[in-house]
Design a protein around this nucleic acid. Structure first.
Lengths: 292, 292
DNA sequence: CCCATGTGTCCCACTGAGCGGAACGATGCG
DNA sequence: CGCATCGTTCCGCTCAGTGGGACACATGGG
């Protein structure tokens, strides 16, 4: 099956210098949407797989970039005939993985997908065990609290608690970010060689002008993080926001996850010592609770 | 699509008298798992669809019942050859919709499914605007707070806030329940004829010995709910637990969602008036915020 | 006005992708 | 140790999924 191609549309596309300052609210389409953060190696031949199923999952991934898409949009993105895209969407919508807007004829992610995702989340032991600890952190700091894990070269926040009041919420910020641009990501790559390798392979696209841009800087940061036991991030993902993260280490010393506090740069800088202490303790308690 | 069929396998299968008292923690397998709550009309030929994609989605739905499944389990459930199930799982796992446990060779719902589900949730306007209101309700009552919508004959909780402390969490309770067994479901069916029709068609399996069992009782309850404007539920989904719900009505008077408070039967019974008042106000404010 | 270009949906003939069956090695239980 | 069952792999047949094209409808500019 298809060691083929990587079809035209996939080619260079790194380094869309998005320089995020305020989170874009995902308006509908734009000719060719580009994202600095790609999900795994995407179509790597997938031997032994079912092509039409893979296409259907490609359809779902289209909605990572855009909230609502038409049949033709999707056909173009996948490089398939309109009829094929239509058939795939019909199948997905019949099961609620996508929903069709009957007025526009456009599609979006569906209710049943949400339901399955919730179920997946409820079953993640790491996440379930962490939530009370994260809640405690939020009560103590008032900051946004994240629990992140590595997925290839990116980090995914599998839990996010919004600040209680006053502070700006992170709602609009993606749950998937390049690992070198976040404190969680940096602390995980510092304590997980595989995550670091994946990031190096994917390169170092910048999200702001504070982001790490070279492998040398990346490794220097990782070394310092290993010494200190925590990672910080000052405006590297979004200008004006900073964070501090501690690793959840297993018995072999590998990072399985990270707990981080996010706030405005003033918020974090003013309490760096205390924040670092808090996330470190929480991460240790989590590792112990998990018995890893 | 498909006024067709509803093929063989869909036939009787109602009324697994599960009589839930404590939530089962979804142990692995059991020869043929049965659930009182089926997702939509399932496999209704789905004309215009792609069979292998539909099968793949069937695979995902298998995990509604069981947390972890093997290739053979799934092949049996779908009624396909082991090799087919294996191929489907390979495709799903390549994209993170399922994850394989490398030691046991078994599969579970995957990280990317969770990610997509979160995205779907973040994009639901109803849910996003409701969350602050729900949080306020939780602070005022300490109860579990639900936001539910109808999906066929069932109701799905698209948001659940666990009680702040002390009170037993609902974590283990399904996010999908038959609408006649919950206050949210009852209030929605009272103010949405389509939801009521779907429930009647699906019958009235009992979750506890307090559950509504007949269409007559169902309609009587709906009439009273329309008079009072709120619905209650005393031990009808789980013994010892009660709830009260108010509808989120659009301008035509149809219920689009419901907000409910859940607690032990003593908790709810003791404050019924106040709880009813609180959910009603919250539901009205939500409808107004949504401009529906 | 009409024409050009977009959309979503439907139909159909061709063919290669996906199917089931069989065989394999590994694992675990009695 | 068998016996059973697991997950995985291979292979040849065939039907399911493909792309192209036709269609009705909507939009917008000259």
């Amino acid at each position: 099956m298809s060691t083929m191609a990587r079809s035209a549309t996939t080619a260079p596309r790194q380094r869309s210098l998005t320089l995020v300052t305020a989170p874009p609210t995902a308006t509908v389409s734009a000719p060719v949407p580009v994202s600095t953060v790609r999900r795994r190696a995407a179509e790597e031949s997938t031997v032994g797989g079912v092509k039409s199923v893979t296409s259907a999952l490609d359809v779902l991934d289209c909605f990572l970039d855009a909230e609502e898409l038409g049949v033709s949009d999707i056909a173009r993105r996948l490089g398939v005939a309109k009829s094929t895209a239509h058939r795939l969407l019909t199948s997905l919508s019949a099961r609620g993985l996508t929903d069709k807007n009957p007025e526009t004829g456009h599609y979006r992610l569906g209710l049943h997908l949400f339901e399955l995702g919730q179920l997946a989340g409820d079953r993640m032991r790491l996440r379930r065990t962490a939530i009370p600890l994260l809640e405690e952190l939020r009560q103590l700091t008032g900051c946004t609290v994240h629990l992140g894990v590595a997925d290839g070269s990116n980090i995914i926040y599998i839990e996010r608690l919004e600040p209680l009041r006053g502070m700006p919420p992170m709602t609009a910020v993606s749950r998937r970010l390049p690992s070198h641009c976040t404190s969680s990501g940096k602390v995980i790559t510092a304590f997980d060689p595989e995550a670091a390798r994946a990031r190096k392979e994917a390169g170092f696209p910048a999200l702001t002008n504070c982001s790490i841009r070279t492998e040398a800087d990346f490794d220097k940061a990782r070394a310092e993080i290993r010494r200190r036991g925590v990672a910080t991030n000052v405006g590297e993902a979004m200008l004006g926001f900073s964070s501090v993260a501690a690793p959840v280490l297993d018995s072999s010393g590998r990072a399985r996850a990270a707990i981080s506090l996010v706030g405005t740069t003033e918020q974090i800088a003013g309490n760096l010592g205390r924040s670092a202490q808090l996330v470190t303790v929480a991460a240790r308690r989590l590792a112990r609770s998990l018995g890893i």
